[in-house]
Amino acid sequence: MSNRRFICAVLLSGLCGLPAGLLAAGKCERLVATGNPQSPPYLWRDPLHPDLLQGASADLLQHLGRELGVEIAVLDSGTWTTAQDEVRNGRMDLLLDTPLTLPQLEQLDYVHPPAWSVDTLVWVRREHALVYNDWSSLRGYKGADVRHAAGTAEFAAFAKDNLTIETLPSLSKALQALALGQHDYVLAPRDAGQLALVRLGLTEQLQALPTAVMSQSLFLGLSHNSACNEPWLRGQLAKKMTELLASGVPATVLQANLARWQAQQAPAVDAPSQ
């Protein structure tokens, strides 16, 4: 059994050992969360504890846990797809940074308000003539995006019928391909894109255009199959999330994790040669 599975099993066995009356009273003492391990500054693998995730979303969740008096472990499930499966089937309780979709409403209770609002921008080479005003501005250009990147259903429908966009496995690969002229633009979130440019040494070659292509809310989701999914917990998560947002905690942890991610990276690699 991997360390990740062992940690999860220990936490869940402890959860299952709690008296039924305690759970029913809304006093669940342990929760297990997961999310996309490749989405800095919100979540990424802890280099010192590879079975755990760190980032702004993990820190925000720990704030919630302390407010509620609930222990929360944020574990790495391996991929975004696996993370969603682990929460849907109840092996983990909470899914971090998930967009609200109709299919997932049948499997998750979404904690309102959303934890984050993420803008997706158009990234181009600095000498490129593309001017972005609306979705139609991208017609006739060759674009790229990233697998599992956040996106709205409305934009996906428009892109399918009107745009040429290649989906690549990582943001680094997409931006490197853009710098080499293999694409005209890349669609990527504002913060993640800027971090990647710094990491790759491409800040002089690439830039983001100012107008957002879309803005998407990302929520904390509680599994319908979680043993801890009780009215008390749902209500308290919503209450405490509202209080944290009003107090400015998300902005503070986001800035701290932007700095943390950059500090953990190796020196920037050379930019791709032209």
Rank of each mutant, 00 (worst) to 15 (best):
Q84L: 09
K27F: 07
L222W: 02
R260I: 08
E243C: 11
R126C: 02
I72H: 03
G221M: 02
Q107K: 08
A58S: 13
C16D: 09
D46M: 08
L60P: 01
P272R: 11
V118H: 05
Y185D: 15
A153W: 09
E127R: 11
A271D: 07
L43I: 01
P169M: 06
M241C: 05
Q264T: 11
L53R: 10
M92V: 03
E29A: 10
A179R: 02
Q207P: 00
V186C: 06
L245I: 11
P114D: 05
A251F: 03
L218N: 11
L68H: 01
T242C: 08
H128S: 10
L23T: 05
P103I: 00
G55H: 05
L218R: 14
C8L: 12
L48W: 09
L53A: 09
P41T: 07
A157W: 11
L200R: 12
L22C: 14
A192K: 08
E166H: 08
V124F: 06
V111L: 02
Y141W: 15
L23G: 06
C28W: 00
C228F: 00
A20P: 08
M92R: 04
T81W: 08
E29I: 06
A251T: 09
P189H: 04
L178T: 11
H49G: 04
L52A: 15
L61F: 02
S117W: 08
G17S: 12
L12M: 14
A256C: 01
P50N: 13
R199P: 02
R66D: 14
K160A: 14
P41E: 04
A83V: 06
L96R: 05
S13M: 13
W80M: 07
L43V: 00
P114F: 01
